[in-house]
Amino acid sequence: MNIVIITHNYIRRRGDLTALYLHRLSAGLVARGMTVTVVCPHAPGLAREETIDGVGIIRFAYPLSEKKPIAYGGGMHQEVAGSWWGKVVFAGFLRSFHRAADEVCRRIQPDLIWANWWIPPGLVAARIAARRNIPLVVSSHGTDISLLEKKGLTKILSRYVYRRTDRATVVSSFLKDRLLRHVDSIAADRVAVIPMPIGMETFPRTAPPHNDPPVLLSVARFTRQKRLDDIIAAAAKLAGEGLWFRVVMVGEGPLESELKALVDREHLGDRFEFVPLVAQQKLGELYRQSDIVVLSSEGEGFGLVLVEAGLTGRPVIGARSGGIVDIIEDEVNGLLYPPGDVDALAGCLWKLFSDPALRDRLGAAGHARAMERFATPVLIDRVRELFISVASPRKGTA
Rank of each mutant, 00 (worst) to 15 (best):
L29M: 06
K67H: 14
L46Y: 08
D111F: 00
K351C: 08
T312Y: 05
G28Q: 05
A234W: 08
A71T: 05
T312E: 02
L22I: 00
W350H: 10
T7N: 04
I145Q: 05
A115G: 06
E149V: 00
Y21D: 06
I328F: 04
I156L: 14
L277K: 15
H8N: 08
I11F: 09
V30D: 12
L283D: 08
P254V: 14
V325N: 08
V161Q: 08
G363E: 09
S354C: 15
G303V: 05
L175G: 04
G347R: 07
A101V: 03
M76A: 13
A125Q: 05
R24S: 03
K176H: 02
Q281F: 01
L148N: 06
V55A: 06
L238S: 03
V275F: 06
A398P: 09
P276V: 14
D177I: 04
D341T: 14
L216I: 12
S96R: 08
A319H: 15
G142D: 03
L286M: 03
E273N: 03
G251Y: 09
T51V: 15
S321L: 13
A364F: 08
D330W: 14
N211P: 00
L123P: 00
N9C: 14
L179F: 07
M200V: 07
G310K: 05
R12V: 03
Y10N: 01
R131G: 13
R224T: 15
A370Q: 03
L148W: 00
R127T: 14
